[in-house]
Design a protein around this nucleic acid. Structure first.
Lengths: 155, 155
DNA sequence: GTAGGTGCAAACCTTTTGCAGCATG
DNA sequence: CATGCTGCAAAAGGTTTGCACCTAC
């Protein structure tokens, strides 16, 4: 899916849900969908301010909340108290491996895994709306670099 | 395992690692292991203050950090930005289902699930140290009560 | 015209830190 | 008696909110 298309879909759905489509929202959505990384709210603010220096922090947070609520963006905790976002549109669902060495986030997907999660839930009569699976450890490069030998927050 | 035993094990290992065993730590450990729930730092502070009103917030946080580092306690993000802890000693490893209706946390375990996670990681050359799997949705009771019909934060 | 959105600054909440005094080993 | 731990208060993130103004519809 092209950025333009994604942008249009977001605009259409927000309008349909009774939200207004403002310049700020257009900018924030464009920037959020332009990066294919997992960004923090603060990073997104910075990027937006490069184009319009007076976008407010509050607006970014408020827009992210709307986008999350409408399912266009997903928040994920990094384990160190931080929170990142990623856009969801045009991405298959996937889970994450978080490298404690270089902070890189790898994505993966395994259908069998998903099935077993649902099975486990069904056994307990639990109705699953969404899930979050994260593996923490070291990526290939960091293993080679010996990052896995020192403590995560080591000297 | 009896609470006394757990308490003793924690004391022994902390001492052995060169930590001191103070009244405050004994209290905090006792309280942390007394509850079988998933508690926030603030809740633990409150509970401890019932017995010793001048325990400091900083001490609770510092002690939780030591306990987490030594593997006696595990922190888990609740998805709403909050953080909870649970004691680990005498618990098998398990994953969590978080009910969005009553905030209850159900525990479950599935070996096959764990195996497939490791397999997925191995495919990408990723070395897993720990993982976190959470299913969000509604428990049986909340489904019956119709909580799943309203928005999570609904009126 | 009237909601809803925006910018600003202040409030908030949770966690961390600097420091002087205290207690443990 | 030296070092690690504690309590306090203040600082530090990151996120939310109150309010007056603005703008999309």
């Amino acid at each position: 899916m092209k950025p333009d298309q994604e942008h249009g879909i977001v605009e259409a759905q927000l309008r349909q849900k009774g939200h207004r489509w403002t310049n700020q929202r257009a900018l924030i959505v464009r920037m959020a969908f332009a990066t294919h990384d997992h960004f923090t709210a603060e990073q997104l603010l910075d990027i937006c301010r490069r184009e319009d220096p007076k976008v407010s922090r509050a607006t970014v947070y408020r827009t992210l909340a709307v986008l999350e609520q409408e399912g266009f963006v997903e928040g994920l905790e990094t384990g160190d108290g931080g929170r990142r976002f990623e856009h969801v549109l045009g991405h298959e669902h996937h889970d994450h491996m978080v490298c404690l060495g270089c902070e890189q986030i790898l994505e993966f997907h395994d259908d069998e895994l998903e099935q077993r999660q649902l099975l486990a839930a069904r056994r307990l009569g639990f109705q699953v709306l969404r899930h979050s699976l994260r593996l923490y450890g070291y990526c290939r490069a960091c293993q080679r670099a010996g990052n896995s030998q020192r403590a995560a927050k080591g000297p």
